[in-house]
């Protein structure tokens, strides 16, 4: 077991697999998976992660709603969140930031790019 405790929220199983593989490549293998916001909230009971990687577009509770919900809970007010998505426009970037995410990463990304973002939002202690 090494690296950060990460919760990965994405409705696509293939996506989660790819993302997990990327995370493993850069030394993070403590990953909890959730298929949407609702599922993720339920899985938070199993323990708070050090970082959230959240897809935007998901059924039931989308990424923005989930981030909003997280930020509304005292214990998750400051846990870093990276949105994994395909934001192109200024409006979309604003929406991600307003919701309370720390950063975003456009798909597709390389493990290296992911590593950079993680390093940015989770400064080594």
């Amino acid at each position: 077991m090494s690296g950060l405790k990460i919760m990965l929220v994405d409705d696509s199983g293939t996506m989660r697999k790819i993302e997990k593989m990327s995370l493993a490549k850069i030394g993070h293998d403590q990953v909890t998976e959730a298929v949407n916001g609702v599922d993720a909230l339920a899985k938070l009971k199993e323990g708070a992660p050090d970082l959230f990687l959240v897809d935007w577009n998901m059924p039931e509770m989308n990424g923005l709603q989930f981030v909003g919900a997280l930020r509304g809970m005292a214990e998750f007010k400051s846990v870093p969140i990276i949105m994994l998505t395909t934001v192109n426009t200024q409006d979309e970037i604003m929406a991600v930031m307003k919701a309370g995410a720390n950063d975003f990463l456009n798909k597709p990304f390389t493990p290296e790019a992911l590593q950079e973002k993680i390093a940015k939002v989770c400064p080594p202690k």
Binding site: S12, I18, D55, N57, M58, P59, K107, P108
Partner: peptide, 17 residues
């Protein structure tokens, strides 16, 4: 939204692959 999401997810995943 359902259709949008389908296109979106396929786009994202296939880009990775």
């Amino acid at each position: 939204n359902t259709v949008f999401r389908a296109f979106h997810t396929i786009k994202g995943t296939s880009a990775f692959l």
